[in-house]
Design a protein around this nucleic acid. Structure first.
Lengths: 365, 365
DNA sequence: GTTCTATGAGAAAAGGTTTTCTCATATTGA
DNA sequence: TCAATATGAGAAAACCTTTTCTCATAGAAC
């Protein structure tokens, strides 16, 4: 065996065993790199230059079809995968985006994240998740770290459309898309269509023959609360009334107690601002001996499955299609990163009705 | 003004306005780069070479203290931040790790993620979140993408310690740390100390004077269920019995119904396998007219705040310190990435008791 | 046999940073 | 004044990939 040389790998090609000799120094280099195989290794093994390898793998340049195929085959054999850092340095595309979020429990962020990831993984894009927990300093640290890492874009997401993240994303050198959080007026923003969702819920109650409708919802300072209440009011007509409160089960309980002790005509349909309130309402009604859905239909909002499915009876509710929203936001930020233009403005995505048992009515939809 | 030159920026230094002239070609380059300022721009502005700038900013090499300070000041002025891609290419450290997860709802993953991020953001490390949803193909795609991006390490996390992710992480060129999921025997794995947590819960019930104890928990094929049950049994002594079921509220309801209709002596303390079961138990007891905590103390497991706080009364429960677990896993993967050695094996982190009202007893702890 | 074209493949530069090596100048001592 | 040393700063290579440009060879046409 040649002195100072070692066998790197042996390849069986066309039935012949070919031994590849590499200088010991090269192997040492390779060790230091963590055993990663580079395009140079592949070129050496294939007996061509690195440029030829690159062109072969990227279907660029002119070359004999046989050469291209052979190089591709050997690349697969030795497990060559191009270093995305080097690639990104050259192309100024890192195939990486950042997801900035405010939402600690992830009730909104996780489905959105799932949609983003789902849409972008096919494009080779990975997602940095940065939870900033309402802390401006932490937000800045994360944004700086993302920019240092040359993210191709940023998606900012929060819990409500009428508050912005505690960090300034204007004037960044990368595109920013907002989801469920407020952006500048000339930015691209995605949110759920609250009015349409509320109308959907109210129409469903009416379709089931309910006429004395109440909307028990969250704090009036949420713009989405006002939009839903307004849509509810116009859909419900004369019979509809709205009660504002907080986003908790106990508010649902209390609202039922208030209604049933008020002495007026009792509602036969209740549209709740979220599934937690609905859970409280359903529990309170059961405790009063009011039958759901026989006496009263209750519909929630959010389709927070882990809660909606465990309620007795399971909640019919409105789903904001958060995963789809994430998917669209992901594709949008990708488009912007690739220089494709997009019209700024607020995009409202439709909600859908999820029928379980708390309203009665057809299970099929 | 000089032809072919443009003002890049103007700097006020020592009271003098200094105009920096750059060739138009350079500016065009700059534009194409997305307006990012490089070390070359900084070197030009500071009137030194790039190597001097690099050494100044990294506190390397010999140079006049005044020069170093001046370069640092100008770097801050023009907002220079080194390109992490270029840096990573050279150092083979990307300051990036991947978090692989199985857990769609993120009940476990999100706190763990928060801990990881919290521990690593100070070290300039960002985290790729990859949800693979039990899909081996998707898992491979994500792992490959992370490796291409030269992550410094991977943290694998799941929902239970006795199942592994549907993707092979052995023999990867980067360190892997497991949290709440099974790894190879020679790997570093973190999990909560189920036995200690269960003992803590049981001891708390006993300390409150409860003697007829029941443990209502999840499926017996979970190793954590068996460990908790075993610890419960030895702590509870003669009076303790265990009922296995599923992880749902309705199982909590049913278990209470079973117990109260069995005709034997009724329990005065119930330790539940998770907060959902505890919620079901508490609701069922209230509906039977059994007072919690006066007649029966109920304690949960998980400290899933959004559920525990909304239960009536709010749940006393065991917290698995998931954020701390994430923090330790993050620091561990960082240590391994930096070549510091670590002993393989399973590390069990202690749980803590969170006192609310479902057991009675002191609010202070 | 000679010139032109087509084809295949290699050389080199670029991307932004860090590190090592080299060089020039200033300072010290004799 | 000259040599030796200390000091500050620049040049160049390296990391890995892609792309453009150039070159060599084979075949075709005259």
């Amino acid at each position: 065996m040649r002195k100072g040389f070692l066998i790197l790998t042996s390849v069986v090609r066309k039935g012949f065993l070919t031994c590849i000799f590499v200088k010991e120094a090269d192997l040492t280099t390779q060790r230091a790199r963590g055993g990663r195989v580079t395009i140079h290794d592949l070129a050496r093994v294939a007996g061509v230059s690195v440029s030829t390898v690159s062109k072969a793998l990227n279907d660029n340049g002119r070359m004999a079809a046989e050469t291209r195929a052979r190089i591709k085959r050997m690349a697969a054999e030795i497990g060559f995968r191009p270093n995305a850092l080097a690639r990104g340095l050259l192309s100024s595309r890192s195939f990486t985006i950042g997801l900035l979020t405010n939402d600690t429990y992830g009730r909104f962020t996780l489905p959105v994240m799932a949609g983003i990831s789902d849409a972008l993984v096919d494009h080779g894009v990975s997602v940095f998740l940065c939870a900033i927990e309402d802390d401006p300093a932490l937000g800045k640290v994360h944004v700086d770290a993302m920019l240092d890492k040359q993210v191709d874009g940023i998606i900012a997401t929060g819990k409500r459309i009428d508050r912005s993240l505690p960090v300034d994303l204007a004037g960044l050198p990368v595109p920013v898309v907002y989801a469920f959080t407020a952006g500048a007026s000339d930015s691209v923003t995605f949110t759920a269509d609250d009015a349409q969702g509320a109308a959907l819920a109210t129409a469903w109650l009416k379709k089931l023959g309910r006429r004395r409708l109440v909307h028990i919802t969250g704090p009036e300072d949420f713009v989405s609360v006002r939009e839903r209440a307004s849509a509810f009011a116009s859909e419900a007509g004369e019979g509809g009334s709205v009660r504002y409160g907080v986003w908790s089960e106990s508010w649902g309980h209390q609202a039922v107690a208030d209604l049933w002790s008020a002495g007026g005509p009792l509602p036969d349909g209740i549209f709740c601002g979220n599934d937690q309130i609905a859970r409280g309402v359903v529990d309170a009604l059961r405790e009063r001996g009011v039958k759901v859905p026989e006496d009263v239909s209750v519909i929630g909002f959010d389709n927070w499955e882990i809660l909606a499915e465990q309620t007795r009876p399971p909640l019919t509710t409105i789903d904001m299609n958060l995963k789809e929203l994430g998917r669209e936001a992901g594709l949008m930020v990708l488009a912007l990163a690739e220089g494709r233009p997009a019209e700024p403005g607020l995009r409202k995505l439709p909600c859908k009705l999820v029928v379980r048992q708390s309203c009665g009515g057809a299970q099929t939809n």
